[in-house]
Amino acid sequence: MLALLTRDLRLATRAGGGFGLGVAFFLILCTLVPFGVGADTSALRPIAPGILWLGALLACLLSLDRIFALDHEDGSLDLLATAPLPLEGTVAIKALAHWITTGLPLIAAAPLFGLLLHLPAEAMPWLVISLLIGTPALSMLGAFGAAITVGLRRGGLLLSLLVLPLYIPTLIFGTELIRRAVASGDPTTPLVFLAGITAGVVALIPFAAAAALRVNLR
């Protein structure tokens, strides 16, 4: 399992692996938003948590099809499927690798981009916490979507149509966490829900994703 993880990480960070593209996309999005809504602090501040969450979500979406597509093309996915490691485990590792290469850089960059959008200082730790709890669910659900669309020729657009509705609960609780933390200082309820969703997704989605993958490898 560890070997698979290090292999995936090495592939992602190598030239052409697309490492860092997500963060660059995130930066561009945060740069474009003020052009769209105006540079006014009073206009930017209330929407900053939402924009940052949306940016992280879309940046995460960008790299989803790479989770399985390359391995499917060169046949190593078939090898992984016949390996002693259960396919559910492979899916979980692949999602974890995606989270480390995409989710973690986004979380690290988010407070910096929060400055660009005039995110209040007291919201910064909550932004990082909400992303830290929420993004594993995004990677795992993305792996499910990627598993469903892996064999398709034009899977990219379909992938976003399938995955984005699944992101709704995470997005709602993630942004609500920041909003409540800033407004009342008590983000317990959304925090618990967000963590619950992530825990449930990480525990159960690998089975669904592995089932979809088995169908596509048949």
Binding site: P165, L166, P169, I172, F173, F193
Partner: peptide, 13 residues
């Protein structure tokens, strides 16, 4: 599952 989850998330929101 997620449609149901969204239903309650939206109610909360």
């Amino acid at each position: 599952v997620f449609a149901l989850l969204s239903r309650y998330a939206v109610l909360f929101w």
